[in-house]
Design a protein around this nucleic acid. Structure first.
Ligand SMILES: NC(=O)c1ccc[n+]([C@@H]2O[C@H](COP(=O)([O-])OP(=O)(O)OC[C@H]3O[C@@H](n4cnc5c(N)ncnc54)[C@H](O)[C@@H]3O)[C@@H](O)[C@H]2O)c1
Ligand SMILES: NC(=O)c1ccc[n+]([C@@H]2O[C@H](COP(=O)([O-])OP(=O)(O)OC[C@H]3O[C@@H](n4cnc5c(N)ncnc54)[C@H](O)[C@@H]3O)[C@@H](O)[C@H]2O)c1
Lengths: 239, 239
DNA sequence: AAACGTTTGTGCACGTTTTCACAAAGCCAG
DNA sequence: CTGGCTTTGTGAAAACGTGCACAAACGTTT
């Protein structure tokens, strides 16, 4: 009776890398690669080979020593572990520029996340069709979510409305939220939240740019004081 | 002569949170809040107060014990540390759906990252104007970058063209890249790369959804075997 | 000017993630 | 079926990130 079922807990850092491996493996499979070593996969994913092996080891012992991993089988196992064996329809809240772009973007549904519904609070948006889906009113979100058994919601409203949107999603029964607004949202315990913030990414890059600029200036100063070894010019390792 | 200049190295995890604090502090300043405690800021940012204090301590000792932090001063210090005291124009490669959406999005320039240029390889796109900027041909990227002294590039091409786009950007003199395609790009040492991948975020959420589903099923099984304490129903802590 | 309540700044312990390094396991050639 | 080559899977160490807990510092009140 011992349920030998998965129930391994996979480290969050690994979960974030599995989708990257998955995509690469899918591409390799497409071009006829049947087998791949941790070294090759690591190269393609831009990470350390030992890390790849440890990551994959959380799925089970699916490699063959001296040979590598069967690409097709590995794709199946990762998909299984990530819960990608079936589609996860999503509901988008906010049918503005971003909401419409997302709804119209196929790379969304192609990856198993079809747009199951779009809602907006603005009556002038309600009724229009974007990406083949008719925009419904925010008030109907519960019907939309329950009709297609949706558990993932995407927030694409202005930042000021993000908390409202999150509350509506949770009330409608959604248990995972991807937030595209810059606003931090509060959700009840047990709800997962992912965040995509353009400005944050750019600001991180700006920080590294500035460091480089400062370091370069520092180097010049050192150079002037005769301390910089030629050929060893400083460049922040940040890639 | 000892250059007492910054040159503190700030942990990457902290760098990723500073933009969040910055936005919140800006909002608080707007609504007239002059002073804030680490506790309050932590609450608004959804993190631990000790973490906030440690993060801010990397900037220097700018708080006042028993009082808190001066909001305006802190905004200034974070902006300074992140290198946001001046604008960082960006060049967008790829004027398709995403490229046009980004170019037309004001929250971009508003945060100090104006679109300094857009290039595309498709002649039918060249010459059109999006977001007030005229699309130039990829071949002219070097002129575009150098004319405005751009150091940040954004890749919004199809995934298959991402490496090409990265190579072009690096050749043109860009030293930081934000990659919106799902493709992993290789860049020379010393170039910073940020990545925004929608599918990865959704797949991470799917994983948590699936775990919840499995755990719930597990609970039912436990319940059936009399092991589930009522009121203690399992819900994965993932928020 | 002392006593008090508040909040910072940070040492320390703990948890997580990365990396190293190597035995175990497989394939293949002879 | 043995020996040599390759590559996995994983302990153990190192590096990194988080959160607790508390002394030090500050403003206020008496
Ligand atoms: N446009 C971009 O390229 C881009 C890029 C990155 C991030 N973002 C972020 O995405 C969000 C949306 O941007 P946008 O350009 O699409 O804005 P937008 O103004 O075009 O669209 C917002 C939509 O949300 C609707 N809305 C407002 N309150 C609502 C509510 N409570 N419930 C449901 N719908 C509501 C509005 O009616 C509108 O249709 C913003 O937070 C923005 O910062 C946009
Ligand atoms: N549209 C979305 O909502 C969305 C969301 C997330 C991610 N993405 C990703 O963003 C990328 C772009 O998506 P899109 O919908 O804008 O695609 P798109 O096809 O509309 O636009 C791509 C543009 O890039 C140009 N291009 C192609 N090769 C080029 C090259 N070598 N140099 C310069 N330009 C080149 C094309 O001419 C085209 O104009 C894709 O990788 C996609 O996966 C898109």
């Amino acid at each position: 009776m011992a349920a030998q079922r998965s129930r391994r807990r996979i480290p969050e850092a690994t979960v974030a890398r599995l989708p990257v491996y998955l995509r690469i493996l899918g591409e390799q499979f497409e071009i006829g690669v049947a087998n791949i070593s941790s070294e090759e996969l690591a190269e393609l994913a831009g990470v350390n080979a030992a890390k790849v092996r440890k990551d994959l080891s959380y799925l089970g012992s699916y490699g063959t020593r001296g040979v590598g991993y069967d690409v097709e089988f590995l794709v199946y196992q990762i998909r299984r572990e990530l819960g990608l064996t079936h589609d996860w329809p999503v509901v988008i809240v906010g049918a503005g520029n971003l909401g419409q772009a997302l709804a119209g973007y196929n790379g969304f549904g192609d990856r198993g996340f079809p747009v199951g519904g779009i809602v907006d609070i603005d009556d002038s948006k309600v009724g229009s069709v974007v990406g083949g889906v008719r925009v419904r009113h925010l008030d109907e979100i519960k019907q939309v979510v329950q009709a297609r058994n949706i558990s993932i919601g995407v927030i694409a409203t202005p930042g000021a409305a993000a908390q409202d949107a999150a509350d509506s999603l949770v009330a409608a029964g959604v248990t995972s939220i991807l937030n595209f607004t810059p606003t931090v949202i509060n959700v009840p315990h047990g709800i997962s939240v992912g965040k995509v913030d353009l400005a944050v990414e750019l600001q991180i890059l700006a920080y590294h740019e500035q460091r480089r600029a400062n370091a370069a200036q520092g180097s010049v100063m050192q150079s002037l004081s005769g301390l910089l070894i030629p050929g060893e010019s400083r460049r922040g390792a940040s890639a």
